[in-house]
Computed example of a mutant assay.
Amino acid sequence: MMLVQEAPTWWGTRRKRRAMAASFGMRYVAASARNAILVADGIELTGIRGRRTWRPFVRRRLDFIATQLPGGTVGGVVHLGSTRVAVVVCHLGLHPRGRIHELAQILSLCNSFGTPYLLTGDLNEEPDGPIWKRLAEEGLTDLGADAGPTFNSSTPYKRIDGALLSTGPTRTSSRNALPPLTARLRHVPATREDLAAASDHLPMLVELSLSASD
């Protein structure tokens, strides 16, 4: 499964995204704004939900004033054995205070699935910022705490992308609420030149697995 920010848009949006997915041997299944989810054969994404997120239309930095494209977040549920987990992708804006309001909308969508969830995306903020603090307060585990910088892909110097896992997963086949999920984030096995050609951010590879007891 691939969770994409800044997917192709404007004219021929769906055609472009389907072509992008096909180039990876995957299917384009869901999107909101410029966030998209692609899946490989054999993976079914159910209960898909997307939401446009409010963000300030204008942002200011020093003497520079610019507009922002609309925000959005999208997710769905996959099954790992008897465990249901939602996967959600987002892309926060460049307005510092606006990101707080966006995050509240995103967490509302995440919690609406009623399952443990993996939240990924470009948070446009380093880990000492208020967004990361709010996610920690929500009980999410930062999977990339030791992963190193993610931006930019040519000469990475800061981490502004996140992959965070909620706690307390439940099982569909049992009342036992012990967490059966484990997760880790690792680097994508590709050359720096290829990664820089693909995006201005480094990708994150998240591996979710069930505990041996499941």
Rank of each mutant, 00 (worst) to 15 (best):
G42H: 04
L135G: 02
P116T: 09
A163R: 00
S199Y: 05
L178D: 15
V4M: 13
R159L: 04
G93R: 05
V39Q: 06
S209E: 14
T9K: 08
S166Y: 02
D142Q: 04
D200I: 01
L165E: 00
L103K: 03
A33I: 06
R59N: 09
T182K: 13
T150F: 05
S23F: 01
R34I: 11
E138P: 11
V77F: 00
R49S: 13
G81C: 04
S173N: 15
V89Y: 00
A196Y: 00
L62F: 13
R184N: 13
A22N: 08
V58L: 08
Y28M: 08
R175C: 12
G93L: 07
F24V: 11
T73E: 01
T120Y: 01
E102N: 06
T83Y: 04
Y28F: 15
P130G: 13
A30Y: 02
K16V: 04
L178K: 15
T83G: 02
G71Y: 01
T53R: 06
A145Q: 11
W11L: 15
R14Y: 13
G75A: 00
P180A: 12
R186T: 14
S112A: 10
D41W: 09
T191S: 11
E138Q: 15
A197P: 08
R18T: 11
S174E: 07
R134C: 07
L135Y: 07
P180R: 09
D161T: 02
G12N: 08
T120G: 05
S174L: 08
Q105N: 10
Q5A: 11
P96F: 12
D161N: 05
H79E: 10
A190Y: 02
S154N: 12
H187P: 11
P180I: 05
W11T: 15
P179C: 15
R97D: 15
L123T: 01
C90E: 10
A196R: 01
V78W: 02
D142Y: 08
P127S: 01
W54G: 02
E126A: 10
L195S: 01
L62S: 14
G50F: 08
A7C: 03
G168Q: 09
Q5H: 10
G168K: 10
A19M: 12
W132M: 09
H95L: 05
P96H: 11
A198N: 08
L195E: 01
A36T: 07
E102G: 06
M26G: 07
G129L: 04
A136C: 10
